[in-house]
């Protein structure tokens, strides 16, 4: 069993005897150190979706599925096509990528994990930390290097997130894919 806050996009859990893939998991602190998680789930058999809320420490049963390492090749609407180590093409429907879509970009070289259910790829999990380039942000604020002051930045695929005030256009930044949050400037 895993707690609700340990699940992230791409993972699969069992709910009332059925398999559901997590498309999105939103974590919020509710009060007095308690937290809640809202998930967007898709039923792997029926395709039905639901958006339940759990206490962060609710225990849920993960379903361990077959996985293989893949890299992104190209997008052929509505399919994202990946390649495994043996050069097999693996297609995943766009709507099954959930939050992973935020960080999909042409030319990305991240080694991802494709997750299979009954022989079909049903989701993609990104590495915990990825590096992306900032295509636009307001100019850096002089003097503030603490990293506590944040501002908006846009990635090359158009996704926006909060970054530290010292980040500049063209900077490569590290992002935590579990939370979608900026971690820091990428090391060379």
């Amino acid at each position: 069993m895993k707690t609700a806050n340990e699940f992230r996009a791409g993972q699969v859990l069992s709910l009332n005897g059925q398999a559901w893939v997590v498309l999105k998991a939103e974590f919020n602190k509710s009060g007095r150190n308690a937290a809640v998680v809202k998930m967007k789930l898709k039923n792997l058999l029926t395709g039905a979706s639901q958006e339940p809320v759990f206490k962060a420490d609710d225990k849920l049963e993960p379903i361990i599925l077959e996985r293989s390492q893949v890299t992104y090749s190209y997008f052929a609407d509505p399919l994202y096509v990946f390649m495994d180590e043996e050069y097999n093409q693996i297609e995943v429907e766009k709507e099954n990528l959930g939050d992973t879509l935020n960080f999909m970009t042409d030319g990305m070289t991240d080694v991802c994990e494709a997750v299979f259910y009954e022989g079909k790829a049903i989701s993609i999990e990104l590495p915990t930390t990825i590096v992306r380039t900032v295509s636009y942000t307001e100019p850096a604020v002089r003097g503030d290097t603490s990293g506590k002051v944040m501002k908006m930045a846009t990635l090359e695929n158009g996704y926006e997130l909060q970054v530290a005030a010292f980040v500049e256009i063209g900077d490569a930044i590290e992002i935590d894919t579990r939370t979608g949050e900026f971690k820091g400037r990428a090391k060379n």
């Binding site: 009332n16 939103e26 009060g31 007095r32 809640v36 809202k38 339940p52 609710d58």
Partner: peptide, 27 residues
């Protein structure tokens, strides 16, 4: 019955269902 918060995520969570123990719980 959850804690009080003015954060903007709260309306999106209010009245959400939680399928636990074979029952449905409302947040």
């Amino acid at each position: 019955l959850e804690y009080l918060s003015a954060e903007d995520w709260v309306p999106g969570f209010h009245l959400s269902q939680s399928p636990v123990h074979g029952l449905s719980k409302t947040f």
